[in-house]
């Protein structure tokens, strides 16, 4: 009887255009920073501190988009479990939480100057903090759970449940008012230069977030492939031992 060959480590293909996405993201972010610093006038009322606005709002967009994407992929993973959906969901939630952290760090620095306080528990801020804490809780649940499958499914369910709260952040100003301005309808950008900076920052941050997600996705798939190979190898060793026992 001929023994089967050991499993071969098949490499995980890099997502198409990852390098290109990174180069484009860096270019857009650099262009946005240069435009914000040198070509955009300071706000008449708030002064220089308003320049936080561009990356603050872009980070909010990235947070919302990637947390909702993570929740969507988690829902797919719950209905039809697949390693690709799992890696995508985890990566998207991480990137969403990353930009949520940026949002919650840059916001108070701006608020200190414009509202006179670092933090206030008004609806949009409170919901943003809640969603960030939920995203971190999902990631911690997944990372620290002793039963990986249970952690994966419980984390996915929690991410799906948190998605409506993410959407409520967007509606919070309309529904409950509060100090926070409604950016796109509330006149957040007053001049053409400000609008260019704003959309450059949004494009740069979203491309950067996508590149980070692609990078993390590739890495999570590598981890999954490694675990899969370890299991196949263990099964192969067991079969070989049995075959050797039978032939002797």
């Amino acid at each position: 009887m001929t023994l089967p060959n050991p499993p071969s480590p098949r490499p995980v293909a890099a997502p198409l255009g990852l390098s290109l996405a990174i180069v484009v993201a860096i270019g857009l972010v650099e262009a946005a920073l240069a435009h914000i610093a040198f070509a955009t006038p300071p706000d008449i009322a708030l002064g220089v501190v308003q320049k936080i606005f561009y990356f603050h709002v872009a980070s909010a967009f990235a947070m919302l988009l990637f947390l909702v994407l993570g929740a969507g992929l988690s829902a797919i993973d719950l209905v039809a479990p697949s390693d690709r959906a799992d890696a995508g969901a985890r990566g998207a939630l991480e990137v969403g939480a990353l930009f949520g952290a940026i949002l919650l760090v840059t916001g108070p620095l701006w608020a200190r100057k414009s509202w006179g306080t670092w933090w206030t528990f008004e609806p949009r801020l409170t919901l943003s903090l809640l969603v960030e804490l939920l995203a971190l809780a999902v990631l911690m649940l997944r990372g620290l759970s002793s039963d990986a499958q249970l952690g994966r499914r419980a984390g996915a369910a929690m991410a799906v449940m948190a998605a409506p709260i993410s959407l409520l952040i967007h509606l919070a100003v309309k529904l409950w008012g509060g100090n926070h301005p409604s950016v796109l309808q509330g006149g957040g950008v007053q001049s053409a230069a400000m609008r260019i900076s704003f959309w450059l920052a949004v494009a740069g941050v979203l491309t950067l977030a996508s590149a980070l997600l692609a990078l993390r996705y590739q890495q999570l798939r590598l981890d999954q492939r490694h675990r899969e190979l370890e299991l196949t190898f263990a099964a192969w060793q067991l079969r070989r031992t049995r075959t050797a026992g039978e032939s002797s």
Partner: peptide, 10 residues
């Protein structure tokens, strides 16, 4: 200063 806050944010 607003400039300090903006620099800290970035």
């Amino acid at each position: 200063a607003g400039g300090d806050l903006a620099a800290a944010a970035y």
